[in-house]
Design a protein around this nucleic acid. Structure first.
Lengths: 253, 253
DNA sequence: GAATAGTATTCAGTTATAAAGAACGAAGAG
DNA sequence: CTCTTCGTTCTTTATAACTGAATACTATTC
């Protein structure tokens, strides 16, 4: 995390280029060179090298992210202890509710979607596996923070702040602490359009045997389709049930 | 594919290091330096830079592949056109059969597992999403090759050969061509322990509207548990059914 | 069909930088 | 307590990455 004493600039540039390609959904040499601080011949050299290693695909004059990253990504995910036990439960919950179900873990103060399963009526969202999100504005993130030490929460908020993403985002520190307290009480978190207008979620933490969160699981659904009864009654029960099964399997087997 | 005229060596080294970390399932500086042709201080510089960009995690003195790759990997997978339509069918087939179901695509003459779904009794294997395999020794690979032009098959075999992985692997070119012919006839391929002893599969190609394969789907099961009746009667039907649904959705919607 | 305006590539020169290698510090084994 | 072993720091140097201009494509427009 701390700045490296002797950074290898080329490594940084390589990943900058890759992230630009992803962001632009495919890009050419000049397009990339305009965004990264090196000339286009240098960018060209990077890209042909990456292509040689099969980490990017060349399609005409456009370069794209290669499937080789799936190997590294899936490997990293499989190494994450909770993934193995949680996956089938996430699938089942998606089946049961018909909605979009997410599994999130925390890394360096941010959330990373580890797995996602789409029920029959699942909303189409900007989230995808591997995506990073701020913790304070999602049900998942709040559920995770509620079951971490006060010091950890302090650190993360000091680092990340409480930026407003929608009018409903909690941006006040005291209000946020009260929210975490409530989540600890009821053992699940509610996201009332705090990250995205029109979207709300019910999320539950998955904790280890000392009640520290290691992940969170959520059901996300559009405000207009799912009424309050179902949202506030049925979903919490379903989500808590799934979280519980995962915890049991994870901690006692 | 052709060697780059002006390669950026550092890019290659970076991915060599990452692949070593993956292979060793986590590694320290000296361990990596021993395998890559640079000194340990240089390796150290690489690793701290990668850590800074969150592409590796440091755990004590061991470095591990970071979850950030999941973002790139999942993105690349989502960009693959067949993935979206095939995923739910793969899941369903896994549910139905209780076995391990795989989806493979071809890239540069090799196969890449795009998606995998575990049924209730699924075998535990060395395959995982993103893994590369040779095409000639799996049902999936043979199904894909059977629905490509002769020239393409020639090129790929010239490039990759027909190396023997088990006593059952087809290593003779003429026998391989006959096998492809048979697959074209019955529209599914059988892997009789050709890649891994004790494992056999039924695989069907997924073709576009001009009957060129774009992927293949398979059910894999252990020889000792699944008897011939089920293997040669029930499974082909199930796999062909799933492939058919995917083709319909993919080509006509 | 020529001209033009975008691209991607190539290439030689320059300079920034990645790597070597030795030294230091910390941690663990015998 | 000494002897390894490993990670980290630091300087020096050779190298390899980048610049910037030239060239080669390719598509579009007149």
């Amino acid at each position: 995390m701390a700045d490296p004493k002797y950074p290898v600039r080329t490594v940084g540039r390589t990943f900058e280029i890759l992230e630009i390609i992803q962001e632009l959904d495919g890009a050419g040499v000049s397009e990339i060179a305009a965004r990264v601080d090196i000339g286009k011949s240098a960018v060209h050299n990077h890209l042909t090298t990456l292509e040689n290693y099969e980490y990017v695909d060349k399609d005409g004059d456009e370069y794209h992210i290669g499937l080789s990253f799936l190997g590294l990504g899936a490997y990293a995910r499989n190494r994450t202890p909770i993934y193995d036990t949680a996956q089938s439960q996430v699938d089942e919950l998606a089946d049961e509710t018909g909605e979009l179900v997410n599994l999130l873990v925390e890394k360096n103060g941010k959330g990373i979607y580890l797995y996602q399963s789409k029920g029959e009526n699942a909303v189409e969202l900007d989230t995808h596996e591997g995506k990073r999100v701020r913790l304070h504005c999602t049900g998942l993130g709040k559920a995770i923070l509620a079951f971490r030490s006060d010091e950890t929460v302090d650190e993360i908020i000091a680092d990340q702040g409480l930026p407003e993403l929608t009018p409903q985002t909690i941006t006040d520190r005291d209000a946020f602490d009260a929210e975490l307290e409530e989540i600890r009480d009821q053992r699940y978190a509610v996201d009332r359009e705090e990250r995205l207008n029109g979207l709300r979620c019910i999320a539950a933490p998955i904790t280890d045997d000392s009640d520290r969160s290691i992940a969170a699981i959520s059901v996300a659904c559009p405000v207009h389709r799912v009424d309050d009864d179902r949202f506030y009654e049925d979903l919490p029960e379903a989500v808590l049930g799934a979280a519980n099964v995962i915890e049991l399997e994870y901690n006692y087997s």
